[in-house]
Design a binder for these strands. Sequence first.
DNA 1: AACCGGTATGATACAGTATTACAGGTCTGA
DNA 2: TCAGACCTGTAATACTGTATCATACCGGTT
Lengths: 168, 168
Amino acid sequence: MGAKAGTKAAAPFPAQEHDHGHCATSAMDRAAAICAARGVRLTELRRRVLELVWTSHRPIGAYDILAQLGGPDRPAGPPTVYRALDFLQENGLVHRIASLNAYIGCPDPGHAFAPGIMICEECGRAAELHDSAADNALSRAAAAAGFAITRRTIEMVGRCRDCAAQAA
Amino acid sequence: MGAKAGTKAAAPFPAQEHDHGHCATSAMDRAAAICAARGVRLTELRRRVLELVWTSHRPIGAYDILAQLGGPDRPAGPPTVYRALDFLQENGLVHRIASLNAYIGCPDPGHAFAPGIMICEECGRAAELHDSAADNALSRAAAAAGFAITRRTIEMVGRCRDCAAQAA
DNA sequence: AACCGGTATGATACAGTATTACAGGTCTGA
DNA sequence: TCAGACCTGTAATACTGTATCATACCGGTT
Ligand SMILES: [Zn+2]
Ligand SMILES: [Zn+2]
Ligand SMILES: [Zn+2]
Ligand SMILES: [Zn+2]
C-alpha cells in the first residue's frame, strides 16, 4: 500500500543495494547542465565539494567535507568549503539541514519550492519529500493566521521503509 | 477553508500593544503548575531562564540569556543555561528554533505534537502554528513514502499580519 | 601581448554555539 | 542523620560559521 502515486514520484529513499556510482555521476551531470544554463561556473573546488556531498545519502557536515578536501596533511580553511556550499545551495544543488547542521545533495535540482527532508534515525540517510497537499495545507494555515511565508524549513526525523522492514 | 478550527485557536501573534507583563506572569504560573503536576522542580535558576525567554516574543539565544544571568561582572558558564534550557524543553515550556539557534517560550505547554513556528523577518517575533489539516497532510505524505515520523521541525520565515498592515 | 574589472580561492584570525568532565552543593526521603 | 539523587559552578574543549585581506584566475579590451 502506501504510494498510490499517480505521479512518477521517484522513490525518496533509494534501495539499500543500488548503483550509487550512478547517483553520483548523474548528479554531477545535472549540476554541470544547470550551471551551464545559468551561466555560473562549476569550478573544480565546487565540483569536488559536490562529489563529497554525494558520497552517500547521509547528510555530511561542513567540517567533514573540509577534512576530506585537502587530505590530512594540507587542510583547507573553513571559508573555502562554506563558500562552495553557499554556491551549491544558491543553485539548488544541495540543501542545508538546519536541525543537523549538515548538507545533502539534491536529487532533483530545479524544483521551485524547498522540499521537506526525511531523516532516518536508524540508517542516517536523508531524502526529500515533495507533496503539494501538505504544502498547500501549511500555506493555508499560515495565511489564516495572517502570515505570509517567504521561506520554510520542514525536517522530519523517523524511520525509513527499509529500516522498518529490517526491524520486523 | 484554511482554519476551520473547531478549536479555539488563540491569535498566534499578540497585538503590538498588549500587556506583556501578563504574558510573562501567566507563563510562569503555567510553568509552575506543570512542574508541580509532573513532580519536577522549577528551581530558581530555571525560573530566571524562563523569565528571560519570556521578556519578549522574539526568540533569544542561549548566550544572550547567559549574558543576562549573572550581570556583566560575574557571567555564568554555558552549561548552566543549556541545562536549564534542556529542562524547559523536556517539559514543553520552551521550544528551540533550529534555523535561528534560539529559543522561544511556549504559550500553551502541554500540546501533544511539536508546533510549527512562524518567524516574522520584519519585527523578529515568533509564534506557534497548530493546524491539524497541515499535520495530517504531512503525516500522510510521509507515510506514503514509507516513512514513520517521530519528530519534526517546521519553521517558516515571512511577514506577520501586523507588519504587513504597517507596510501597506 | 599587456591591461583591467569581476570572480574565485587561499590563509589567518575570530565569533558564536554547544558539550564534556569533574567538583561541590542542595534537596528529599529513609 | 545519612545516603543518594538531583542540581549548579567552573574550566576546558569541540563544533559551526564569519570577517578580513591578500592573491590567483578568467574573460574581454586595447
Ligand atoms: Zn545513491
Ligand atoms: Zn533508514
Ligand atoms: Zn506578550
Ligand atoms: Zn512582524
